[in-house]
């Protein structure tokens, strides 16, 4: 099962041309940093920051064609906005796993 929307990523490659590698790198670095921030925010149960960071990751993941990953961040964001953080650490575990798969696939697509 692909972790990226392949038709979309093809289109994105066409748009970005030689900038595509740069984009992937930027996305991965940025997301790595944000994942760390998100993890800490979940640990301290800062629902406002959780929602904010998850929202940002949701958007950028969608743009990089990682639909499943984006849907997971949306789940975290929605829970945080509803102040229901109980399930969030569990979802986050899944997200970390999905992110690493996306990362691998993105590097393959390059």
């Amino acid at each position: 099962m692909s972790h990226l929307n392949l038709a979309q990523i093809q289109e994105l490659k066409e748009v970005m041309e030689e900038g595509f590698d740069d984009l992937v790198m930027t996305y991965l670095q940025d997301s790595d940093a944000k994942m760390k921030t998100l993890k800490k925010a979940i640990q301290v149960q800062d629902s406002v920051q959780v929602a904010e960071v998850a929202h940002s990751l949701k958007g950028s993941s969608a743009n990089i064609c990682a639909e499943e990953l984006s849907a997971m961040f949306k789940k975290i964001e929605d829970s945080a906005r509803a102040e229901e953080l109980d399930q969030v650490p569990y979802v986050f575990e899944q997200t970390v796993e999905e992110f690493s798969l996306v990362k691998t696939q993105l590097q393959q697509v390059k």
Binding site: V15, M16, E17, T26, S56, G59
Partner: peptide
Amino acid sequence: DNQSDRMILCA
């Protein structure tokens, strides 16, 4: 503020 999003839009 999201750099990767910005890159895509600019492109």
